[in-house]
Structures are given as structure tokens and as C-alpha cells.
Write a protein that binds this DNA or RNA. Structure first.
Lengths: 208, 208
DNA sequence: GTGTATTTTTGCAGTGACTGCAATAATGGT
DNA sequence: ACCATTATTGCAGTCACTGCAAAAATACAC
């Protein structure tokens, strides 16, 4: 039983990785303008048409983006009555990591590419928005069951609260992303996330 | 002296408006898939090639996006020692309004289009990021001159503080945008902004 | 006005992303 | 070995977008 995955799934994963590696590698070695669908497909040993069975766009291949999802295990450490901001922020971070094939080395490679070609950051933020939506739903569900948050302040719904919570917590995630991608060989993203969280707290304590 | 603008500039503004109107109008009337560069250009009475003298992309024409800028008059009401979050949030809102030709009617039209075609939201958020950068620079400059903020907490720079401030304040802007575009015929955006600000405060007071 | 410099428009020809479709091949299950 | 399902491929086509150089429009000085 050496096969946790079927032949099909294994091949699929291989092809995916080959395309992503070729795309990101070519971007770093020869420049983003040399990354064409035809070239990448040829490099990965598949037909150009097949490329689009794996990625919706050229950029997605370079960044190795996958559909984000929220997992049971991520929700496990989510505590409505504890440090909510931190909980939400870490949940977002966890979900964010699902959109990469993201071995750590691959994550660094992607950050380098984004640093060299900031246009790509847009696509990344696009995905953050998707993550926000996913997390917002999950958070709203938890809040609704909480005694403290089941009723929202003023004329707002629980969904509003969840949305806002995610947006605020998202600030520290964006902060971390911007920091780590502007200095690609810097500390890890989760460290930057905590640093951002700390900074946010300091500022907000001063302001409220 | 009926000409505040030269002939050239007037014609330019007219062509810009014609292209934008045609693009957004066609999107609403016949669907976004019918909005092609050729059709829009023909409708506005210019050559297809000229289209790209005015807009970098089809989406930009539909949304009527222009390069954002931060104006002296916007900075006038910015008070470093007052309600910083509100100040920053309003500054961002002001800058955001510069990216539309944005007569109010036009703003509503755009919101409708985005509501029908959520893919376009991405482009809008892309611009919000640009706005964030502009505002961050402006805010950082002001902070540096302030006695209270000139020295940042912990191992952070003034730029970090400005960045985080903009990201947090930006949360209420994003909140407002998402609210007003999901219910296009709702209250004005600045009302939604204030509501978001209020909600954020309530939540944060509870959390800190 | 006339002439000249500058800006804008335009046509052309090309590249490359992306799509739908229908045929073919590969895989999974029986 | 057979069939159902799914993946790959080629083809033909649409359309966004670009660089370049010619032509037209506008501004400006005289």
C-alpha cells in the first residue's frame, strides 16, 4: 500500500509541481517576460492546452496558487473567548498557507519573484480577499454561538462583526506580507505576523 | 474666457468620459462580455488604438479608474493630535474618490456594475492598495513631525506605524466598500464609512 | 495667417493569453 | 477484457494589448 494517492492523483500532483516550478524558475532565471504558457508547458512536458487544466492564468502558475480552504484542524485552535484578534489572525494565516504548494523553500522563491515583479502582488491580494471571505463565514458561525458576541452592537449584524473582525485582523496579515516580500530574505512570515499584531495593539491602546 | 481648459484638455476629457460611459453603459445594458475594446472605441468615436491612450485595460474603462493622488486640500483637515483613525480613514476616502470621474450618478453606476460582475472588485481593491501606499507616505511624514509618534514602539520605524495605521483605518474603508457594493442602492459610502468606524471602535474597545 | 514644435490619433502588424469543441488517450473499476 | 470516467491534446478562433512610424490636430511664436 505505498499509494496513499491513486496513480492519477500522483501524476496530477507531479504535473502541477512541474508547471509551477518551471514558471517560477523561469521567472527568476530569465525574467517574467520569458514566462509564456507555451514555454512553461513545453518545459513541464505537457501540451499548452493542458496548462489551463491546472492553472487559470499564467500568474497563478508562477505563484503556485491553489483554491484556499478552511480545514477542521485550523478551527481547532480557534477560541472565541480568548484573544479573538490573535485567533482570527492566525486562522487567516493558516488558510493563507493552503494557497501555496508551499514547501518553505517554494514560499521563499515566490516571495523573491513577487519582490522582483510587484505586479504579481495584486494577484496575491486577490487571493487574500478570498481567504477573508472564507474566514469571515467561519468566524461568523463561531460568533453566533458565543454569548458575548451573539448580539452585535448598534444596528449591525453578527456577519458585520465577523467581517470587521477579519478586516482588522487582516491588517496584520497584510502588514506581514508586505514586510516579508519587500525584504525577501527576512524572518519568517509568522514572526512578522506576530510583530505586526504587537504593533497594532500598541497603536490601538494609544488611540482608544 | 469660457475656457478654463485648453481645447486639447477639453477634448481629452470628453473622449475619456465618452469611453468610460460607453464601457460602463454597455456592461449594464448588454452584459460585460459585450464590452470589447473595439466596440467601446467605435461607440466613443475613436480608433481602437486610441482607447489605450486613455485606459490601460478594459476594466479600467468600465470602472472609470484614474491615477489616484493626494491633494493639499485633503491634508488640510488631517489632524495628527486629534482622532487619528478617523483622520486617516477620511483621508483614504478622499483619495479614493479621486480615482473616479465620480459624479455621484457615475459612482452608483459603477457600484451596480461591480455588484453584477464581482470579478471587477479585484481591480478596485488593486487601486485601494495604491491609495494605501500614497496615504501611508503622507501619514508617515505627518507622524514624523508629531511629538507623540515621532518615536515608534518596540523595534518599529515610523513608517511601520504609518503602514499599520493605514491598514487598520483601511479596514473600515473596505468594510464600507463591500457594504455599499453588495446593496448598490443603499446609503452613501461616507455614511457606511462612519458606521464601519463606529463598529470597529466598539469591537476594539471590547477586545483591548 | 504662416510656419514650426508638440501632442494626439491612427493604422498596421504582431504576440500571446485564453476558450470551446471534439477526438484521443490514459486510468479506474469490474 | 470491457466499459465508464477523466485527462490530454490539437485546432481554430477571439480578443486584449504593444511597438512603431505616419498622419492629423493643436498650441505657440511671429
Amino acid at each position: 500500500m505505498s499509494q496513499l494517492l491513486s496513480l492519477r492523483d500522483r501524476k496530477r500532483a507531479e504535473t502541477w509541481a512541474a508547471l509551477h516550478l518551471s514558471a517560477s524558475g523561469t521567472a527568476l532565471d530569465k525574467g517574467l517576460e520569458c514566462v509564456t504558457v507555451d514555454a512553461v508547458a513545453a518545459d513541464a512536458g505537457v501540451s499548452p492546452r493542458t496548462f489551463f487544466n491546472y492553472f487559470a492564468s499564467k500568474e497563478d502558475a508562477v505563484l503556485g496558487l491553489q483554491e484556499p480552504f478552511v480545514d477542521e484542524s485550523m478551527l481547532a485552535e480557534f477560541d472565541v473567548d480568548g484573544d479573538l484578534l490573535a485567533s482570527v489572525s492566525h486562522l487567516m494565516h493558516a488558510v493563507t498557507r493552503t494557497i501555496h504548494g508551499s514547501a518553505d523553500e517554494d514560499g521563499n522563491r515566490c516571495r523573491e519573484v513577487i519582490c522582483r515583479y510587484p505586479q504579481l502582488m495584486h494577484r496575491r491580494f486577490q487571493y487574500i480577499v478570498k481567504v477573508e471571505q472564507l474566514v469571515t463565514d467561519a468566524v461568523a458561525e463561531r460568533l453566533a454561538q458565543s454569548s458575548r458576541w451573539a448580539t452585535a452592537p448598534a444596528g449591525n449584524t453578527v456577519d458585520d462583526v465577523a467581517k470587521m473582525l477579519v478586516l482588522v485582523a487582516g491588517a496584520s496579515l497584510r502588514f506581514a506580507i508586505q514586510k516579508t516580500t519587500s525584504h525577501p530574505t527576512r524572518e519568517s512570515q509568522s514572526e512578522a505576523l506576530d510583530q505586526g499584531m504587537e504593533l497594532m495593539r500598541n497603536i490601538l491602546k494609544e488611540l482608544l
